[in-house]
Structure formats: structure tokens, C-alpha cells
Amino acid sequence: MLSIKNLHASVEGKEILKGINLEIKAGEVHAIMGPNGSGKSTLSQVLAGNEAFEVTEGEITLNGENLLELETEERAREGIFLAFQYPVEIPGVSNLQFLRTSVNAMRQHKGQDEMNAAEFMKLAKEISKQVDLDPAFLKRGVNEGFSGGEKKRNEIMQALLLQPKLAILDETDSGLDIDALKVVSDGVNALRAEDRAILMVTHYQRLLNHIVPDYVHVLAGGKIIKSGGRELALELEERGYGWLGLKDEETADSSATSSAN
């Protein structure tokens, strides 16, 4: 489904990604792990088309289509979803309005009719329950005054609502307590489907206890230096990134209370 070949990307002239190769098939869940500053978040931003990053070499295709030729919103409509690590606030714009605009933009792209306010409200309420969000939050401004946990749940709720082909979860576990982590993980597991791929970017292995990946990749210095199965994450947990000859003051422990922030 997603194919990344020799991807190089830089920000403000500084190269962050230095030749990423990655193949993700439909139905698979991949985890990208790595120490801080390894380029994990950059990879997710580049996939989603953030213009702050410049792709200098390589290619990204989604089901054979060249993603690099598509604008951010076009990639989104093609089914790329990014759950943000730090979702930004949009004051005065209600969640409901934002979500409905988003859903309708996608529906329109697929040639489906727009959902009216009442239909959408019903759907949004159902899905908000799935991630344990009080439906009252729909009336609040986008991410306005949300707690860290609410923001993350809101991101997952949006993934459930939009049903993307590829969901990229950027540090979705950071800043969550164990209960919230459970709710978010349940949400992500509900997303797992044969026709959908999930790419999880995380510093910690603890998330992978809840969402078991098919493949684990270690990203360091802008390259994938090791790939393996579920056992690779466990090994990292046990031995830390130092085991791979990487410097990182934090280790990939599974402590539920630690945070990547």
C-alpha cells in the first residue's frame, strides 16, 4: 500500500531523513521506534505533506500513486491520516463544525453526498463514545482548552470518523496515563482492518503492549537501522537504544507514567 524509497527530507536546509526505505502492506501495523531526534516525527509530517519539510530525494507512493505530487489536502482525501502529537487549537471553531467540514470534504472527494448537521451529529456522538469523550466536547472549540489526553482521544476519534487507508499515529501515547492509554489503544485497535495500514511512531514500547505491531523498525540518524517483528520492541525495552550503539538518555522502557515530552 505505502512504499517509501530512498526518502531524503530536510527542514531549513538541515537534512533530517537520510534515505528511508519502507514497505507497508494493507492490513499491517508497523511501529517506528527510535531515540529522540532520530527523525520519527519528521517522517510522519513528510508523509502527510507538511510544507515546512522539503523532500530532496526519493519517492513515496500510496497504492502506486505518487504522493509527492499531491497537496496536503489531496493526500488526506486519498486516505492518509495523521494523528498529531500536539494538535493545535482553532479558537471559536466548534469541533462539530470542523469534523463535519472534514468528513464532507472527504465524502465529496469520493462522490458521496454531504452529511447534514443532524446525520453528522448522530455519527459523531456514537464515535465520541468509543473513545470515551463526552459528546459535549463536540460543541467546544477545536482542541480549545482540551487536556493532553482529550486531545489524543480527539485525534483517534477523527481517525475512526474518517476511516483512512493509512493512519499515521505520531507519539499517540505520549502524555497519557494508563487509563487513557487503554482507551486510545482500544480506539486504534478498532481501526485495524484488512484494507487499512497503521504506522505508529513511538519512543516507548509500552504502547506496543496494547497495540501489537506486525513489524518494528528502529529509526536512527534519519535511517532505518534495524527491522524486525514484535520481538524487536521487547528487546529494545530490555536493553535500551544503547544496545544498538545509539545514544539516548532515555530508554525505551515500558513505564506507564513516563512521558516523551
Binding site: 505533506g49 515546512a52 497537496e71 482553532i90 471559536g92 470534504a105 472549540g141
Partner: peptide
């Protein structure tokens, strides 16, 4: 209107023009 706000909207499939107008409308709500 921050690049982050625009990126969030566009990542959700919302056209840039529409995103700006939505952000501005939110700003004017009161």
C-alpha cells in the same frame, strides 16, 4: 492564522481557502 492550524485543517482534507475562512469565522464568532 498559523501554519500549524492550516496544516491541521488541510490534513483533514479541508481546502486551504475554506480552512482560512473557517478559522476567521471562528475568530469572529463573538
Amino acid at each position: 492564522v498559523s501554519d500549524e492550524q492550516m496544516f491541521l485543517c488541510r490534513q483533514r482534507g479541508i481546502d486551504p481557502e475554506q480552512a482560512v475562512s473557517m478559522i476567521v469565522n471562528g475568530f469572529c464568532k463573538e
